[in-house]
Design a protein around this nucleic acid. Sequence first.
DNA 1: GGGCTTGACTTAGCCACTAAGATGATGACT
DNA 2: AGTCATCATCTTAGTGGCTAAGTCAAGCCC
Lengths: 180, 180
Amino acid sequence: MSRTPRRPLESLDSLAPPGPPDAPARVLHELGEAAGLLEQVMAGRLGLARSDLVVASVLAVHGPRTAGQLAEATGLTTGAVTGSLDRLERVGFAKRTADPGDRRRVIVTLRVERLGPIIALNEPLVRSLQALDAEYDPAQRALLADYVRRAALQFRSEALRLRAEGRRSAPRKRRRRAAT
Amino acid sequence: MSRTPRRPLESLDSLAPPGPPDAPARVLHELGEAAGLLEQVMAGRLGLARSDLVVASVLAVHGPRTAGQLAEATGLTTGAVTGSLDRLERVGFAKRTADPGDRRRVIVTLRVERLGPIIALNEPLVRSLQALDAEYDPAQRALLADYVRRAALQFRSEALRLRAEGRRSAPRKRRRRAAT
DNA sequence: GGGCTTGACTTAGCCACTAAGATGATGACT
DNA sequence: AGTCATCATCTTAGTGGCTAAGTCAAGCCC
């Protein structure tokens, strides 16, 4: 393995966040990179698409949701969510039930008793993160959790803002390909 | 909008991390969700695939890399990276150059001067993250950055471990479909 | 009840991805 | 130098997830 030229480019700070090399915001990006890689690997291990894990994760964090809410939360189209739910149901990780109050809706619920494979894959990471947390005292933990939560809110609100902005102005620009 | 049943399920803690509802590790997952959504939206706005942004991000953070290193870092196959580089080159965000020392290799470099569109999309988030950082004093910032960095390392090492483990045992299990 | 909206699914087609193999460069070993 | 195994990237074939647009049923409102 020969060396490749190092040194992060300066003017890229605003691409892959920013500023002082050791600013918290900067390392957030490394975290995102690592989390994405893990998601990729886990999806492969489970024989699922990456989006399926995202959907499952939303359900795990927020509890049962409708298909439309899942589309909203993940940024997928409703069609893509339909496909993802088909796959999750097929392997038994989730189930669809009719909303008793509004029969157009489909409420999606995780089948906790069937999640063994996912939980097993996640367990080592969960344990090591808990161990990491345990190194901090309660006041520090509160500071850390608060920071992460606020950063997450900023990511989320920015995502929603960009999406809303895009729906208006650039309805959907895709590949410009010559006619047949 | 009628209410959907709330309450995050207890035994899912190990799916979507863990423990005390306000543990830092738990909110990390919300961050990942929000970051994924943003990535999705940004890719759509730029007319690129999600993976293309991941590749670009790796280049932004770590500097020029070979195609193989990008595959390693992103979890994509080399073929997928080839396609991603084709797209990034086509829109001018990156360029390929031959490694002078080893002509099998292709070194990929971001074309900083062409990144305007990406930088513009990222700017609001970068600014608000910087503003968030500014609310903390240097000692707190050091604590935060250290925590995030260590968490990122755990995500990364777990991803690498799972991938390595998977390469051995389950070479690649995919759709079991009947013969033609 | 008519007309409009809403929510999930369906369809058609595109394109990103994986897996396997081709191409060509490198380095080691004689 | 010649040979061969290895390595890095690209190429090819095929799969399937995704978007966009449309369908259909259920709710809503007057």
